Amino acid sequence: MPQSWATNGSHEPVGDDEQPLYAIQFRAGLLLEWKVNHRTESLVAGPRRERPALRVLYVSRDGQQAIVREWDAERTASGWRPEPEFASRIARASTDCDDVDIDNQESYRTMLEARYDVA
Rank of each mutant, 00 (worst) to 15 (best):
residue 1 M to F: 10
residue 7 T to H: 09
residue 7 T to Q: 08
residue 8 N to L: 05
residue 9 G to D: 04
residue 10 S to N: 12
residue 11 H to S: 05
residue 12 E to A: 15
residue 13 P to D: 04
residue 13 P to G: 03
residue 14 V to P: 04
residue 15 G to F: 14
residue 16 D to Y: 13
residue 17 D to L: 14
residue 21 L to S: 03
residue 21 L to E: 00
residue 22 Y to H: 03
residue 22 Y to T: 03
residue 22 Y to G: 00
residue 24 I to C: 01
residue 25 Q to W: 07
residue 29 G to M: 05
residue 30 L to W: 15
residue 30 L to Q: 15
residue 30 L to V: 13
residue 31 L to Q: 09
residue 31 L to A: 13
residue 31 L to Y: 05
residue 31 L to I: 12
residue 32 L to N: 14
residue 34 W to C: 00
residue 37 N to Q: 08
residue 37 N to L: 09
residue 37 N to V: 08
residue 40 T to S: 13
residue 40 T to P: 04
residue 42 S to T: 13
residue 46 G to V: 05
residue 46 G to C: 05
residue 47 P to R: 02
residue 48 R to S: 12
residue 49 R to W: 07
residue 49 R to K: 13
residue 49 R to V: 04
residue 55 R to L: 10
residue 56 V to A: 02
residue 57 L to G: 03
residue 59 V to Q: 00
residue 63 G to L: 06
residue 65 Q to F: 14
residue 66 A to S: 13
residue 66 A to T: 06
residue 66 A to E: 08
residue 67 I to W: 05
residue 67 I to F: 08
residue 68 V to Y: 14
residue 69 R to F: 11
residue 70 E to Q: 13
residue 71 W to G: 00
residue 71 W to C: 05
residue 74 E to W: 08
residue 74 E to S: 12
residue 75 R to S: 13
residue 76 T to Q: 12
residue 80 W to R: 00
residue 82 P to Q: 04
residue 83 E to L: 08
residue 83 E to M: 11
residue 84 P to Q: 02
residue 84 P to S: 05
residue 85 E to T: 15
residue 85 E to G: 15
residue 87 A to L: 15
residue 87 A to K: 10
residue 88 S to A: 07
residue 90 I to H: 02
residue 92 R to M: 09
residue 93 A to I: 08
residue 95 T to R: 12
residue 95 T to N: 12
residue 97 C to Q: 06
residue 98 D to N: 08
residue 99 D to T: 14
residue 101 D to P: 07
residue 101 D to T: 07
residue 103 D to L: 11
residue 104 N to G: 02
residue 106 E to Q: 15
residue 111 M to I: 05
residue 111 M to Y: 05
residue 112 L to D: 01
residue 112 L to T: 00
residue 116 Y to F: 12
residue 117 D to C: 07
residue 118 V to Y: 04
residue 118 V to C: 04
residue 119 A to N: 11
residue 119 A to R: 11
